[in-house]
Design a protein around this nucleic acid. Structure first.
Lengths: 332, 332
DNA sequence: CTGTTAGCGCATTCAT
DNA sequence: ATGAATGCGCTAACAG
């Protein structure tokens, strides 16, 4: 690899002259500049970005840390982050946190490789996030609450969303409503469960533990949980799945047992992933403003980086998307 | 930010001792190591990864460059890349090439920020790829053919896949087969079109230009192209969509015109994305070994990096996935 | 086992 | 306009 030194030598100028020329500093005459540029091209010179970053002390890139780069769920979010980042002339890199402590993500977080980070990765511990955040290195978390001077939180209002979903079912005449939950450690799941409870309470419906079935946010988990519910004997009138993936798995289970949706049972999901439109019947669900969440997150980072003082907490509202999986229960 | 110098000072040891201790070099006594680690913690020291990379000369990370991080299509591919990369103790970062010349991706490519790269991004020009590849910096391209000493090619056999798809339609009694194409500049599309032509030719069916409708690999494009085909007057007996997204858009258009699939018309897609199972009827399509392609790509990079000489070209076979969108045409 | 020292490649003074 | 010199933070060879 040719270095700038080689370029300077070849062009017959000093090292600094070459540097100036390559960085378009006006104090270099067009003639020498041209000479330098030609030398660079001849030597196939590429500046070493690492060295240059070291000098500059900021990298002009922000990191988006996800537990899994390949999840379809993140599309909109990434899009939002991407749009704002590029609009600001910054670079975006996405890294996965698979491998926990040893992962690429943690490396980027802890070492000064980026100027800011957005975290949506359950397998990154709170501890690591807190340890990494510091002056000049803001972190936005999307999936937890963390009290730290340099950590900001953008939140989709899970509690309200779950409340809306449950209320919707209640208004449709259902009062036996099962909740298929996500992993109990998941903050998102906790909020959603709380929203479910609140809605029941506000309608004076008693919460019954038997209607709470553990799931894990996967399609397979939804399938199993639903089978369990069916095996349990009497079915509820409606099921609220803590996310769409589980709802889709659940639909499969119901179908296998000849339980009609929405005639025999109403179901509702959470997330509004792309598939919901395509399953049969189309799934009524709660849409999360994923794009907006992503966009807001980076936007915040830029404001903080430029020295502004901003709020630490943001809550984004959800929206119910009515499709075909919930039916008004006939009054007998 | 505290530097390693501060840590050394605080621990009362030499700079190098601190460095060794922090890097778990066995030559440091447990006692001093502990001292250093404590000092580091007290100062909230984080090593500057950039500086360390500069010294090391290799970054232990490889880049996956995609035109769009948010496409659901890439899931499997990313997974394959991810698995092998982490298994080798390397880091993976994904970056998008939006913004073309100015994009993050190009920066990573041209400046020495990663040890190798995998490209699947139509908006990265061949030129940039060729300029960037060099000794010790192998590039694997998935979406083009490039003749360069340091560029390797992993290819899904598009031509064979398209041939299989077309042949399948022919064997089901169809001889008027439309081809809804991707962008004409797309290499993938060109190969697929060629496969289509070859299959026709081998069955002695004349290619008719009117059956070739331009699309752009998007759902919307497939919808429009299909509308155009319908508006054109007489329908073909089957449609081969150059990818699934377009096929799904096309299904929408056909549905709107009350054209039954597969009773009135057979259709086949390409890619085997997740949605294909859920649309109605489920879409018959060509599965690409995306995971394998991703895995092979990184695997190659590692072999090259370790000094092995490897082949420059790899071709992966496709596979037909039969679902419900193709029907045997009744003989009249 | 520990400390000294020389760069990695580049950007940036400060004189000339 | 140019060249020599300095240091960013870290690692690793070498000497003790």
């Amino acid at each position: 690899m040719a270095t700038i030194k080689d370029v300077a030598k070849r062009a017959g100028v000093a090292l600094s002259t070459a540097s100036y020329a390559l960085n378009n500093n006006p104090k270099i005459s067009p003639a020498t500049r041209k000479k330098v540029e030609e030398a660079a091209k001849e030597l196939n010179y590429k500046k070493n970005g690492i060295a240059s970053d070291l000098k500059r002390a900021n990298t002009n890139t922000i990191a988006l840390i996800l537990s899994d780069l390949s999840g379809p769920f993140y599309s909109d979010l990434i899009q939002g982050v991407q749009d704002i980042t590029t609009a600001n002339g910054y670079d975006l890199i996405a890294c996965n946190s698979i491998g926990g402590e040893q992962s690429t993500a943690v490396k980027f977080l802890k070492e000064k490789r980026v100027d800011g980070a957005i975290i949506l990765a359950y397998n990154i511990s709170d501890e690591i996030a807190v340890e990494s955040a510091r002056q000049g290195f803001p972190i936005v978390v999307l999936d937890r609450t963390l009290d730290n001077e340099f950590i900001y939180r953008v939140h989709v209002d899970n509690e309200q969303g779950a409340y809306t979903a449950t209320e919707f079912l209640i208004k449709h005449g259902h009062n036996e409503i099962a909740y298929i939950s996500g992993p109990s450690i998941s903050y998102d799941n906790q909020r959603r469960f709380q929203g479910y409870l609140n809605a029941l309470k506000d309608s004076k419906i008693d919460y019954q533990p038997k209607w709470q079935i553990p799931g894990d946010f996967t399609r397979e988990g939804g399938y199993r949980a639903t089978k369990l519910l069916i095996a349990q004997g009497n079915l509820p009138q409606a099921i609220f799945y803590a996310n769409d993936e589980m709802a889709i798995g659940g639909m499969q289970a119901l179908k296998e047992n000849n339980i009609g949706i929405p005639n025999d049972i109403s179901i509702i999901g959470y997330d509004d992933i792309e598939l919901t439109e395509f399953v049969s019947p189309p799934l009524t669900t709660i849409r999360q403003p994923k794009y907006e969440a992503g966009a807001l997150s980076v936007h915040l980072i830029f404001r903080i980086l430029s020295g502004e003082t901003v709020e630490h907490n943001y809550n984004l509202p959800t929206q119910l998307v009515e499709r075909g999986s919930v039916k008004h229960k006939e009054v007998n």
